[in-house]
Amino acid sequence: MATNVKYYCMAFLKDGTPSVRTFASTKSVENNDEKYITDLKNKVMSMANNEEISIVDIINSEEYNLYINGDGTNTYVRDMETGKPKIYVAPDPTQEELKTQALANLESEYNAQKEGFKKDLDTANLAGNTEAIKSIQEEFMAFNKAYEEAKNEILKDE
C-alpha cells in the first residue's frame, strides 16, 4: 500500500500484536524531537482504551505495512526482543480448546444423526410398520449410549 507517510507511532500488546496507532511527523522524528516523540507516545497510550500495552514505538512505513497488511501470505507481530516485525505463528491449541472443539464436532454429528432417526421413525409410523419402529427405537437407544460414552471420553480428564 503506497503512502506518503514515512513514520507512525504504534502501540503493541505484550505478545507483539499491533494495537492503536497514529501518524508521526517526519520532520519531528528525523530531528529526534524528544518532546514531540514523548507526547506522541503518550497520546497513543491514551488511545489504547485499557488494553494492556507493552510498548509504544515509532516505526517506519515499511514496518507499519507489514503489521497492518502483512506481505500477502503472512501476518506479522512485533518481535519483542528485536523490535522488528516477525511472522505470526499461531500457538498450539490448549487442551481445553481441543476438548471444546471435539465436543462441538460430536454434538454436530449427533444432531445430524438424530434428525435421520426422526425421519426414519416418521416414515415407519406413517407406514404403520411396527417392526421398523421398534428397530429404529433400538438403534436410537444404542446410538444415544454411544454418544454419551464418546462425550464422557472427551470429558474424562476434567
Rank of each mutant, 00 (worst) to 15 (best):
E51Y: 11
A24V: 00
Q101N: 14
V29R: 11
K118I: 04
K86I: 08
E51L: 10
R78S: 06
K99H: 06
V20R: 01
E158P: 05
A102R: 05
A150W: 02
E109N: 09
D92H: 08
L66Y: 01
E62D: 12
N60C: 07
E30C: 09
D33W: 01
P18T: 13
Q137F: 02
K99C: 07
P18K: 05
D120E: 15
M80S: 05
L66C: 08
E62I: 03
T26P: 04
T73H: 14
S46E: 10
T38L: 15
T123L: 08
S19K: 02
F23D: 06
A124P: 00
T73R: 12
D79I: 04
S19Q: 02
E107T: 10
Q101H: 07
A124K: 03
Q137Y: 02
E115I: 07
V77H: 08
E138V: 01
Q101G: 11
A90N: 10
D33H: 07
K43M: 13
K35S: 14
F143V: 03
R21Q: 09
S28E: 14
N74C: 08
A48P: 01
Y110A: 11
L40G: 02
N125P: 00
K6I: 06
E158T: 14
G16R: 06
T130Y: 07
E115C: 05
N50M: 07
A24E: 00
K43E: 13
Y76C: 15
N69R: 05
L126A: 12
Q95S: 05
E149Q: 10
L121R: 11
Y36F: 12
I87T: 13
K156Q: 15
M10D: 01
A146H: 14
T130V: 15
D71E: 07
I136L: 03
G128M: 06
L103V: 04
N105G: 07
E52A: 08
N69D: 12
E115A: 14
K151R: 15
A124S: 03
Y110V: 05
K119C: 06
P93A: 10
N32P: 06
V89N: 13
A146F: 11
D57T: 05
E30R: 10
F23K: 11
D79Q: 08
T38N: 15
N60H: 05
N69E: 11
S61H: 04
Y110P: 04
I53E: 02
C9T: 07
D57I: 09
N50G: 12
I136D: 01
E63C: 04
L40A: 09
A90Y: 03
T3Q: 08
F117Y: 14
F143E: 00
K84D: 07
A127D: 08
Y67W: 08
P18E: 08
E115H: 09
